[in-house]
Nucleic acid binder design. Sequence first.
DNA 1: TATTGTTATACTCTATAACTATA
DNA 2: TATAGTTATAGAGTATAACAATA
Lengths: 156, 156
Amino acid sequence: MSSRTAGERARDRERKTVGRTAAWLAKQVEIGLGSVDLSLPQYRVLGLLDESSAFSSALAERLAVRPPSVTAIVDGLVARGLVERRPVESDRRRVDHALTENGLSVLKSADAAVGARLGDIAGCLDDPAATERAFDGLFVWRQAFRAHRTARRTVQ
Amino acid sequence: MSSRTAGERARDRERKTVGRTAAWLAKQVEIGLGSVDLSLPQYRVLGLLDESSAFSSALAERLAVRPPSVTAIVDGLVARGLVERRPVESDRRRVDHALTENGLSVLKSADAAVGARLGDIAGCLDDPAATERAFDGLFVWRQAFRAHRTARRTVQ
DNA sequence: TATTGTTATACTCTATAACTATA
DNA sequence: TATAGTTATAGAGTATAACAATA
């Protein structure tokens, strides 16, 4: 007979289909972003530029997209005045990108809108401790992304 | 003076930008799906049809997209033989959708690919307990989505 | 020559509006 | 008339290939 509990089996099943849950989480983010008229890729760009300005090539690497996609995403953000393209004196092939004041403001609104959307959903759990675990889980994922990026940099 | 610890302040900051983390999680899912040549919307459809067959209108509601988007997403899945459109005898305006054997097989490959990708990332955390918390967090989000959907149904 | 970024082009997902078939 | 789904069309994000500017 198996010594696994029902809870353990449920966790195994979840582990196998964890991507499905992440896919739904992504949809909820998109819904939240709808209220500030941003797409998921645009939101990622604004978030990156909130940490530091970046060349086009650096954005492509961080976003895990090809260079032409960066041009396309940033075109829309520049048109709305949320991001500024700046020439680089030391190497005139390169283009630097920076958040404008308006861009930072929209990013904060986006953070709030998405946070509210996710809060509404996690708040449907009957146990407040479960709601905490949901947000704690995302906090841990953020740390994991940092660790993963560091590991990749070390290898290369 | 504030009685908040550094850990509490970090959690507050995370709570405000939790959407950014979810946005990166979404990108990692997309990367994982690349190996089985599925898009995020296609993966969501296969996941839904794995639970039960569904009319086009039901898919649109569950996916939170408009009806023409369902047609577009399913077109690609039907062309690849992963999903079958079936006429409904009782109301010939409606169209039912079901996973094919091949579709189920591709879905399982997708689950495995995305799970492996997320496992690689969560595995970069130095503490195995943290890796567990990451996956546990997504498990809780899945429960939250179910609770949220139930709550919405009750209201309507 | 090699590198950086953009342009040209095509495919998917998204939407709204208009249409067809059915109820 | 009303409803279910598709078609027509347009805009954004993605890719590859080709190009211009610069190193």
